[in-house]
């Protein structure tokens, strides 16, 4: 067994420390050490995308990063999207447009879309579909996810800046 390493990072705007074995994935660290279980593991091979979180603003597979690699990083997870009870425009759009069924892949899709829209708020429909093809959903057939992201993009552009989840 290799020794645990102590790291500090920012999660959803809050400074946190964790002491983890190097082999602990970022996903497992978030879930088991920091008790943020909204990030889900669907494959641990980087394919399904259920574990997608934002690291320094970029959507990444948290199963393909080790927790120790997040030392000093700013991580955002699904728990940080809503402002209290006020849903993020993406969450609101997923809700209104039935963009989820079992909900297991949903946090990954939300964070993927959040990161992609922050990089490019003006994605075309084609670009949205291309980005969303990064993650797998087995329930919805995707059309309501695509629709929700498209509508959320409009809201995010028009409305007040997304809520205070940015650090």
């Amino acid at each position: 067994m290799s020794d645990k390493i102590k790291i500090t990072l920012t999660v959803n705007g809050t400074a946190m420390t964790a002491e983890v074995e190097p082999r602990r994935s970022l996903a497992d660290m978030l879930r088991d050490d920091l008790r943020l279980t909204g990030t889900h593991l669907g494959c641990e091979h980087g394919v399904c995308g259920a574990c997608t979180v934002l690291v320094d603003g970029k959507p990444v597979r948290s199963c393909l990063m080790f927790g120790v690699q997040a030392n000093g990083a700013s991580v955002r997870t699904v728990e940080g999207l809503a402002d209290g009870d006020r849903l993020h425009p993406l969450q609101q759009a997923f809700w209104e447009n039935h963009g989820l069924q079992c909900g297991f892949c949903t946090p990954g899709f939300l964070m993927l879309a959040a990161g992609a829209l922050e990089e490019n708020p003006d994605m075309t429909d084609e670009e949205i579909r291309d980005v969303l093809s990064s993650n797998l959903c087995r329930c919805t057939g995707y059309q309501n996810i695509v629709k929700a992201v498209r509508l959320a993009a409009e809201v995010m552009k028009a409305g007040p800046a997304p809520q205070a989840t940015r650090s």
């Binding site: 889900h40 728990e79 809503a82 997923f94 949903t106």
Partner: peptide, 17 residues
Amino acid sequence: PRLEDPSLLKGHGTYVA
């Protein structure tokens, strides 16, 4: 809109893991 969704959307669903 589904009553199930707000908790799932906020990452508060509780799956077996």
